[in-house]
Simulated assay, not measured.
Amino acid sequence: MDIDDRSDISNTGLLRSVIESLDLSSVEIDKITKLFENKHEELNELFSLNLYQILDAEKDDLLSEHYEVLAKFRERLFETWKTPLMRLDSLLYMCMEAVDELRQQHAGSPLLHTRKFNMATRLQARCVQVGNEISHLLHGGYADGAFARWRTLHETAATTKFICEGDEDLATRFFDFQNISRLKAANKYNEHNELEFDEFPAEQLTQFENDRKKILNKYELHFDKDFGWARKALGNNAAPKGSLRFTDVESFVGLSFLRNHFSFANQYVHAGIDSIGYKLGTSMSKKDLLLTGPSNEGLIEPIQCASLSLIHATTALIKAYPNEDSSIKISTLWLWHEVLKQEVVDADAALQVKGDAFS
């Protein structure tokens, strides 16, 4: 059965329900039925237009009520999670100030134009941006979505730490590697451009190819493989040939202790069977329901993991470009995290009490 067949059945059912609701004679019913059979497409458009007009006229009232419900929910969520959420937001501000202060401190100096400084500060800034996205999802009650974004934050934080602890050559390799991936991405885009957007022109693809050849001639064998830019810095930890993996970088910078959390967060990124199974949003109530909106459960993991990743990235940046206040700043960040860990436990316990009371 194809889509058109299913559409005919659906519309026939609609027609029958309309006819049955009217006081019609058999002759009138026969006329209507024949009209439907002969004018199927026209009537289908008429029914669709009618339904569209009804929904369009009611959407403002419907959404007004929906937005009001969501606003009240967010108020209740914030009552419970206010303390750790505010601490996370404060941490984000501190991390933002750290990179801003560093760039202002070195404004006009030769350091500002080095590849390492440029890559390190841009990566740390992206950590802050992703952290703010996580915060926004947490305030809205989307713990699973926040944890999915933490996966990106973890990757970015590990890369930030790797670049910060490396030298100028590593940062240059990281920057140059875009010339390897750019051509592949452009060709794939043109090949699968089914929506018919503007394609990459031939002359631009030629330039990408020339840039790629130039970079490959600059570096050793296997540079064009996955994470080829990291191979030299990884040294004996790198596979002798073939592609490297993110786990190689993750382990090298000492963040593999978050591997299990990273693997767990993957289920909220991909569309595997696990993505419709266990959810942070129902982790406390353990309700078997089709969660399609926000929940005030499960915020512990994304809050704590986001805090850890932000601090690792920011401390790596501070250590790479230290000043007289660096040790104090780093100690403060870790103290902030220790207090946050207790605050999320307290908030979760308070939510559990409310849940018991309601039950």
Rank of each mutant, 00 (worst) to 15 (best):
R122Y: 09
L123D: 00
Q124C: 13
A125I: 05
A125F: 02
A125G: 10
A125L: 12
C127A: 13
V128W: 03
Q129V: 10
V130L: 15
G131R: 02
G131V: 01
N132R: 15
N132H: 14
E133N: 09
S135Q: 05
S135C: 08
H136I: 13
L137K: 04
L137C: 10
L137A: 13
L138K: 07
H139C: 13
G140Y: 08
G140H: 12
G141N: 11
Y142F: 15
Y142L: 14
A143D: 04
D144E: 11
G145N: 12
R149M: 13
R151C: 02
L153W: 06
E155T: 04
T156P: 06
T156R: 04
T156Y: 07
A157N: 00
A157S: 09
A158Q: 08
A158V: 09
T160A: 15
T160H: 05
K161H: 14
K161G: 07
K161S: 11
F162K: 11
F162L: 13
I163W: 03
I163L: 12
E165H: 07
E165T: 13
G166Q: 03
G166E: 06
D167Y: 04
E168M: 08
E168C: 08
T172R: 08
T172L: 07
T172N: 02
R173T: 01
F174H: 10
F175N: 12
F175W: 15
F177M: 07
F177W: 15
Q178I: 08
N179D: 14
N179L: 03
I180T: 04
R182Q: 14
L183R: 05
A185N: 10
A186D: 01
A186G: 03
N187L: 14
Y189A: 12
Y189S: 09
N190W: 11
E191A: 15
E191G: 02
N193A: 12
N193D: 11
N193K: 06
N193V: 06
E194Y: 15
E194F: 15
L195E: 12
E196T: 05
F200D: 00
P201L: 01
P201C: 00
E203F: 09
E203H: 11
E203C: 01
Q204D: 11
Q204N: 04
Q204L: 09
Q204F: 09
L205E: 00
T206N: 12
T206S: 14
T206L: 13
T206F: 05
Q207S: 06
N210R: 09
N210E: 11
K213E: 04
K214M: 02
I215N: 00
L216I: 04
L216H: 04
L216G: 03
K218W: 01
Y219A: 02
L221W: 04
F223H: 01
K225M: 11
D226R: 07
F227E: 07
W229A: 01
A230D: 11
K232M: 13
A233K: 15
L234S: 14
G235F: 12
N236K: 15
N236V: 13
N237S: 15
N237V: 10
A238F: 12
A238E: 11
A239Y: 07
K241G: 08
S243T: 05
L244W: 10
R245W: 14
R245V: 09
F246E: 09
T247L: 13
D248C: 03
D248W: 05
S251M: 11
S251V: 14
S251W: 03
F252Q: 14
V253C: 05
L255D: 08
S256N: 14
S256H: 10
R259M: 03
H261F: 11
S263L: 14
